[in-house]
Design a protein around this nucleic acid. Structure first.
Lengths: 169, 169
DNA sequence: TATTGTTATACTCTATAACTATA
DNA sequence: TATAGTTATAGAGTATAACAATA
């Protein structure tokens, strides 16, 4: 499953200020962490907005598609489980799920063991939609990732793992 | 300014499938690019939602603060310049700017050379707010970045540069 | 005519509070 | 009582279309 080598080397752009360079084995000092965190957070938010601009009109929204993909890869899930994974509140996710159920892309059933819970499962149609449209939906970013250097591609792969951990914390 | 060494080495978690490993000098094949792009895009969106959950109630919203930070670091800017940097449409940014002008954190003036343009500048109060609250606003992520390994910190720094390029493309 | 900004409007995303059903 | 889900409601964020002012 993983595409990530056990070690990689990153040749990066030369530092403008050589005195600012640090050995890779040292953690960053406090002010550098603050600067990096700030830059990373803003870059993350801007990239999300950039990706939103790319959405075609005749498709599921980003939130709907993300939830459907999660159910496709990790389902069946309860509403709480799905909302935690997607990092929104249950009422927010419930609205998204309603739209997916209304278009018959997701099935909502009562859990057999606990009448309070609902099990959410992608329908055949929903699963097919994921398989058929994922590549097209990801085309904008994939086209750009393809043009990155091997080292930059490895950075993104490693960063994806870190971002998943951050989102889960 | 840069905190990034010219080269870094990344020891990552061992691959579950050794046959999937590739030399770092090779670009990923098409299907791996698609997989990486998909994972990265979803991780990016989820992290944005996670960060949104962290927002305190008594502060500027994320969009307002991001715009103010951009004007603080890169201003003065016209509305179009700011909206392009923040990756939203001019009408969307205009709404954000209206709220910042209403609270006197940003000054809106007609450009001297072109009567159609407006110049947006953070006020003294706005600049002070950025300086005083940035660290607190970034505390949630900074706390987690601080606990990452040196290699993971370097990955995030390199990824931030790539994400900025992606958002600008 | 083209560009820059603005207003009007609508839709999506998200949250909090309050409610229902079940454990 | 506590938990899982839902409904009601409101606010933030965003876009498109139409308009005004200026170049």
């Amino acid at each position: 499953m993983s595409t990530i080598p056990s070690t990689i080397t990153l040749p990066l752009e030369p530092s403008a200020d050589p005195s600012a360079e640090l050995p890779a084995s040292a953690t960053l000092p406090h002010d550098r962490v603050a600067e990096l965190s700030h830059d990373f957070r803003l870059a993350n938010a801007r990239l999300t907005r950039r990706l939103r601009q790319q959405r075609a009109n005749d498709e599921l929204t980003a939130g709907q598609f993300s939830a459907l993909c999660t159910l496709y890869s990790n389902g069946p899930l309860t509403l709480s489980e799905l909302s935690e994974h997607e990092r929104v509140t249950p009422p927010s996710m419930n609205r998204t799920v309603n739209s997916l159920v209304a278009t018959q892309l997701v099935q909502r059933e009562n859990a057999a063991d606990d009448g309070r819970k609902v099990m959410l499962t992608p329908s055949e149609e929903g699963s097919a939609l994921v398989r058929e449209t994922r590549e097209r939906r990801d085309a904008w970013i994939a086209q750009r990732v393809m043009k990155l250097s091997p080292e930059q591609q490895q950075v993104l792969a490693a960063a994806t793992l870190i971002m998943k951990e951050l989102a889960e914390s």
